[in-house]
Design a protein around this nucleic acid. Sequence first.
DNA 1: TTCTAAATTTAGCTATGACTAATATATAAG
DNA 2: CTTATATATTAGTCATAGCTAAATTTAGAA
Lengths: 139, 139
Amino acid sequence: MEQVKLSQSLEDYLEMVHMLRLANGIARVRDIAAALKVKMPSVAKAVIELKKLGLVTQEPYSGIELTSEGALVASQILNRHILLKGFLIKLGVSEAIADKDACCMEHILSAETLEKIEEFVNTPNEPSKKSKTAKSTKK
Amino acid sequence: MEQVKLSQSLEDYLEMVHMLRLANGIARVRDIAAALKVKMPSVAKAVIELKKLGLVTQEPYSGIELTSEGALVASQILNRHILLKGFLIKLGVSEAIADKDACCMEHILSAETLEKIEEFVNTPNEPSKKSKTAKSTKK
DNA sequence: TTCTAAATTTAGCTATGACTAATATATAAG
DNA sequence: CTTATATATTAGTCATAGCTAAATTTAGAA
């Protein structure tokens, strides 16, 4: 449980491996590069780092897999992303911008701030009339 | 009006020059280094970059001054910082953490997100008892 | 005034993370 | 089966941004 400390960049790569595996079943260098708007050699280098850290595995010239620890870390990052995106949308930010900004915020916010954001998101949206009375407003 | 594009790091240095001048009347390398928790040569290097960009001036071996453009950019960054810190505090985050997280967020958020945060901050704090009047959200 | 200590600067090292160019391998077409 | 193309990797460059060590300048103490 040594709590790997990843750079923002490596967090992005790891998260993208996870997302592509969820979406396509496989995470390929080409697709990671396209999604993150970098070139393939940058991905290859990042994958080497993630391998050293024990977060991914890869057969030469093929797709990237997550180790169990890598899957755990990746899903933590992805959960932060989802939380923050929902939060921004609740504030009225458009989806595209919410996605982009969530992508930056997910790497930097402290646990305390994330907690408070989670509380906010889980608060009924408009307590404007009568807050508590059951779940009157449809979700 | 060429809208200088600063790295996060240079934004931090420029903002700190501004804050120290507000607090002490002078921004010295030693104090910038202490405040940002870096060593003095790192500050010296950053100051050289900010000079190249026309944002600060400095007599050799003395304090750092802001140009008019530097002052403008610095106060924009500082305003973002203040906005974001207030925002986090309104969410319930402790002051120390709010300050720290605002410091990261101030460099990355898009204009749209900052606008929405500003709207949120300027909304009356607790409409939980009685929704004041239906002026709040107009969509 | 002289000298010592603090502040600043310069030089140079390191790590990260992007890139291009070139190479190696895999896949698909003929 | 052979070959062209797409994908992946390697090698090497560049910029950013930190650092230490050493030199320089300023300023305070003796």
